[in-house]
Deep mutational scan, measured.
Amino acid sequence: NRRVIAMPSVRKYAREKGVDIRLVQGTGKNGRVLKEDIDAWLAG
């Protein structure tokens, strides 16, 4: 149960899109989840 590193704005964006942020692979520094990662996850 790893802790997800993401800015609050990215967490909010994921919530609005209905994405469980824990399932998204972060590509930022130290595995940080970026807004682009959410978009990529939604695109498949």
Rank of each mutant, 00 (worst) to 15 (best):
V24S: 01
A43V: 12
R11H: 06
G18W: 09
G26F: 03
L42G: 06
K29V: 09
P8V: 06
L23F: 13
L23P: 02
N1Q: 09
R22C: 10
A14H: 00
I5S: 06
A40P: 01
P8S: 08
I21D: 01
I21P: 04
V19R: 00
A43L: 12
I5C: 05
I38Q: 00
G28T: 02
R2D: 15
G18A: 11
V4G: 04
K35Y: 05
G26A: 10
D37H: 02
K17W: 10
M7T: 15
R32A: 09
E36S: 15
A14I: 01
D39L: 09
Q25D: 14
V19C: 05
V19Y: 01
M7G: 15
Q25H: 13
K35P: 05
R32Q: 08
V19F: 03
M7N: 15
K29A: 10
A6S: 04
K12L: 10
D37I: 00
Y13S: 02
A40W: 12
D39C: 05
Q25M: 14
V10W: 01
K35I: 07
R11E: 02
Q25P: 14
I38K: 00
K35C: 06
A6P: 02
G26P: 11
V4K: 05
R32I: 05
A43F: 12
G18M: 13
G28P: 01
E36D: 13
P8K: 15
R15L: 10
V19T: 04
R2T: 15
R2S: 13
N30E: 10
E36V: 15
V4I: 08
A40H: 13
Y13D: 02
I38Y: 00
I21Y: 05
V33K: 03
G18K: 13
I38W: 00
R32W: 08
A6R: 02
K35W: 05
L23K: 14
A40K: 14
G44Y: 13
V33W: 01
G26M: 03
N30I: 08
Y13R: 03
I5W: 05
M7Q: 14
G18T: 06
I38V: 12
N30K: 14
G44W: 13
V24M: 07
L42T: 08
E36P: 14
L23V: 13
R11C: 03
G31V: 02
K29Y: 10
W41D: 03
W41R: 05
K35F: 06
G18R: 12
G18C: 08
G44H: 13
I5A: 05
R15S: 08
A40V: 12
R15I: 11
I21W: 06
A6N: 02
R3M: 06
K17E: 08
